[in-house]
Write a protein that binds this DNA or RNA. Sequence first.
DNA 1: GCCAACGTTGGC
DNA 2: GCCAACGTTGGC
Length: 134
Amino acid sequence: MNCWLIKTEPSTWSWDDQKKNKTTSWDGVRNYQASNNLKAMKIGDLCFFYHSVTGKSIVGIVQVIRTYYPDSTDETGRFGMVDVGYVKELAKPVSLETLKADLRLSNMALIRQSRLSVMPISSEEWKIILEYSV
DNA sequence: GCCAACGTTGGC
DNA sequence: GCCAACGTTGGC
């Protein structure tokens, strides 16, 4: 199983929305690198749910429930999406500041490539981040 | 196929 | 609100 981190601006789609709706189509990705990451996701893969701009924290975990398929909101037909379902909320959100302060996480794409919206997370990184969330 | 101009993302 | 980083577009 692989682990991921997906970003969203709370004004567009927030953790509260996710909690209320349980599942959602992760549409709107318009970047090839991010889209390729979506394509590599498998059913059951876990994703950290990150609030960008407002919050700048990992707030919860979702799980892939449908693999890559065409994004109906993309007129060019170039990009796809996956469906994700609510798994759980972190007891404590993990802020970008916290992640940046831990040198073991300094290779994370979240830090090195701030504009990428879908990125893989190594199992070591996943574990470290989870420890901050309790 | 190069690159300038432009648009977008997201941290600060 | 600003701006750095970076992706995309389109003229040549």
